[in-house]
Design a protein around this nucleic acid. Sequence first.
DNA 1: TGCTTCAATGTCGAATCTGACATACTTTGT
DNA 2: ACAAAGTATGTCAGATTCGACATTGAAGCA
Lengths: 105, 105
Amino acid sequence: MDKTKRAKLEAAGWAVATPKEFLNLSEEDAAFIEVKVALAGALRARRVEQHLSQIEAAKRLHSSQSRVAKMEAADKSVSVDLLLRSFLKLGGTREKMAAVFCLNN
Amino acid sequence: MDKTKRAKLEAAGWAVATPKEFLNLSEEDAAFIEVKVALAGALRARRVEQHLSQIEAAKRLHSSQSRVAKMEAADKSVSVDLLLRSFLKLGGTREKMAAVFCLNN
DNA sequence: TGCTTCAATGTCGAATCTGACATACTTTGT
DNA sequence: ACAAAGTATGTCAGATTCGACATTGAAGCA
């Protein structure tokens, strides 16, 4: 959200909060979630780039369509472990990983 | 191990293997373990830098000394999730994380 | 509209991870 | 050598995460 819009909403009496504020997460929790979301995005990118459906990706990952969907949604029930392993299995490299953390916001 | 030494050992009839070869890990598994080990090192660095014992660190992390030891040893029983959360709780930042993946080999 | 493919969401038993405890090993100072 | 502080390792009950399945929603096409 840009500053102008935020200012307008606040002027109109709205409490404008970031997700972090809204859910009152600590800095660390927020950072952790950011990493998870970033990895989830990278995972989906790897899959789409290879023109795979979630079902096909699931096969390569020895998992299921529903879990792939949850991974890409950075669901509460998926671990960074699983995201990372899956990312690597879909051809993700450590260089690409670094990009996830360095560049991406 | 440098090439000369490796060559000498092989000449002497030793099968010289990297951990990856020895345990015959796939590329992905190897990369995953590398990440885990790198994070474990970064975690220990955070702790030592702050002159904390494992017991003190455990307190800050709401965990136990034994688990901290296992984290720093990148034990099979600790997840990247736990490593990452702990790293962040000990003041690790996303920038420092990126460094773990970019620089460190 | 009906049909097909892809993606999202809820649930569950099995597998894995976690904090805690006990215990053993290591290092450092006396 | 002994004690104390720090670290490592094995175990286990409870918690979390896993793959799988069922179901629903959404988009494209005849």
